[in-house]
Design a protein around this nucleic acid. Structure first.
Lengths: 357, 357
DNA sequence: ATGAAAGCGCTAACAT
DNA sequence: ATGTTAGCGCTTTCAT
């Protein structure tokens, strides 16, 4: 139970050297006599010294911390200000609750932590769904509380990436921002994913196809649809019925209901994410439809619900963990100055065949 | 795009006052002439000044940051060290991936963020499933990178709480540690929850009852079972079949299979969490059993899967968001010195009736 | 290869 | 009510 008051000075005295030498040993700088180095290390061990991060940050101008921001647009949370402290405030946060219910974010966190942890770095989790919350994010970075930001947007109109760039703050996005911004990002070849889904359904002999799309103001929504359409077009199908969803289970079911109302004889559907595909499967089952005998369903993401779903989903895998790790690596390079230009890193999707087709 | 090099000095010069005065305005200290205060505020606004956190932390010895630790025991991840940097390392993390697939953690994060954000504080997310990872957590705190830790353990033998206490680091646990440790925690009246489940099943006229328990080395597992048993005992039932699960969907299905093998005529089952209850429902459906007509199922938690599950689950609600917010508040009080003794805060469960009973 | 010393930007006595 | 000043613990020239 050593009180947090041990300083470099103490260790230096213990080892019979100067502060500077101890600092060099700790930071692994060369030019230190191996014998002295060992003496110092032993002194550190014996005293249980832990360097003070604030003091180090003050001089290095680095925190070795990055912010992981889940960012939305619009939907303000009810009256949370910066002045906190009133009783009963902020017991929960609707946006945060909804967002973290999506298994997608668990994968992002897992990937980010996978990259950061071996480097003794840890992400600060921030939720930014309102202008005030976005302000908190930029302030946080401008104060030097973190070296940069990883941003995962849930909406097309998210102004955060542009704000970050305008402030000159290092940042990397998951997915290309819908609004053009000179910022680095990792993304998936969504179009290719749509193509994979179409070809698989065709190969299974399905001909009366339709698709439940993601939000069409999001590049991911547009591109998955475009790839699907393109492949069908090449196979000779000029028209394909579509219904737009919102990447939630409920919206998937609703979109499918709309599709069935117009085209009761569908035999295959490409759904732009697994959560919506789950909704689709449930709706079909409730109506007595058999998946895949009657209607084949292809999802997108290969999230945990793809396995939970009955039947387990054939889906287009998005390597989220690897993408998240790459996003962290990109940011790390920007912060270190090893990379300066906005860079895009595109990953390839992969079809995972299970029982829904 | 102001470079991060604006200091108090600059603002002071701009406002024509001393550094100290600017500092007082920023920190809301009294004894500042309202006129001067406004001049200073304007200068801050004009220059776009943001105080440097490291410099402030260095003198206040506070970071206004707390660590949110998801802690396990045993299961080491494959060879991640502190020296990072080899290519291909840490793209993902099995423990983190599994943990964040559980909707429970989303609720914890939501509750914690709900409390912290109005105070301009943000959690640093840490995953600690190995001795090395736990070391990172204590080092992080000893360096003064965070003021304290919120720890959510996934295993009974988790040594982290005891380590934190031994180091004199402020910490609060979600749930009472299985090993006795003088530490603050928030928890649920699990026994009461078990009782609620039993009484509801009895009220529904079910008499051939059984239960799928959580891990019995966890207080939550033991207590939920104890409460269930106790209530049945009072109603005259001396014996109830049990099968132990691991709080995962798969383990729930397996436990139910074992139960059915011995007691094919069950008409009601209490399952110690919703994830396992989902597994139970799926197994029953696969075997042609009707829920609730044939077997009534009561879950525990009221997590998002309770709604996703077919049929939607009757379950014992655990107010996770409020508990998480309370945990953050408790830690905040400990850090501020407003509270010194280890404190327990017990929340009451609530029965939520849906379609599975 | 090592030490001395100058700050990093801020807060908090203390003096006025 | 405001200014002056002494550090907070560390890294990093610059000497030696």
């Amino acid at each position: 139970m050593e009180r947090q008051s041990l300083t470099l000075e103490d260790v230096a005295r213990e080892a019979g050297v100067s502060r500077a030498t101890v600092s060099r040993v700790i930071n692994g700088v060369r030019n230190v006599d191996p014998a002295i180095r060992d003496v110092v290390r032993e002194a550190i061990e014996r005293t249980g010294y832990a360097p003070n991060r604030a003091a180090r940050s003050l001089v290095t101008r680095r925190t070795e911390t990055i912010a992981l921001v889940i960012s939305g647009a619009g939907e303000e949370s009810e009256g949370e200000g910066d002045d906190g402290g009133r009783p009963g405030d902020g017991v929960q946060n609707a946006f945060a609750a909804r967002v973290f219910a999506d298994p997608f974010f668990g994968r992002v966190i897992s990937g980010v932590v996978g990259f950061l942890r071996p480097r003794s770095m840890h992400p600060v989790l921030m939720v930014a769904e309102s202008a005030a919350a976005r302000k908190q994010v930029t302030e946080f970075l401008r104060q030097g509380s973190a070296d940069g930001a990883l941003v995962v947007s849930t909406h097309a109109e998210d102004p955060l990436p542009a704000q970050l760039v305008a402030e000159g703050l290092p940042a990397v996005c998951f997915a290309r921002p819908a609004l053009p911004v000179p910022i680095s990002y990792v993304d998936l070849a969504h179009r290719e994913g749509g193509r994979l889904a179409a070809e698989h359904l065709l190969a299974r002999g399905r001909r009366r196809l339709a698709t439940v799309t993601g939000p069409l103001d999001l590049p991911a929504g547009q591109e998955r649809l475009a790839g699907f359409r393109e492949a069908l077009e090449r196979a000779g199908t000029a028209y394909v019925p579509i219904a737009e969803g919102a990447f939630t289970r409920e919206s998937g079911a609703a979109a499918m209901a709309a599709l069935l109302a117009e085209h009761p004889d569908l035999d295959g559907v490409f759904v732009a994410n697994d959560l919506m595909a789950q909704g689709v499967c449930e709706l079909l089952r409730e109506r007595g439809g058999q998946v895949p005998q009657q209607v084949a369903v292809v999802g997108f993401d290969d999230s945990s619900v793809a396995l939970t779903c009955r039947p387990p989903l054939t889906t287009v895998r998005q390597p989220v963990e690897e993408m998240a790790a790459a996003m962290a690596r990109l940011l790390h390079e920007h912060v270190r100055g090893a990379r300066t230009e906005p860079t895009s890193l595109i990953f390839e999707p992969e079809l995972v065949v299970r029982d829904s087709t």
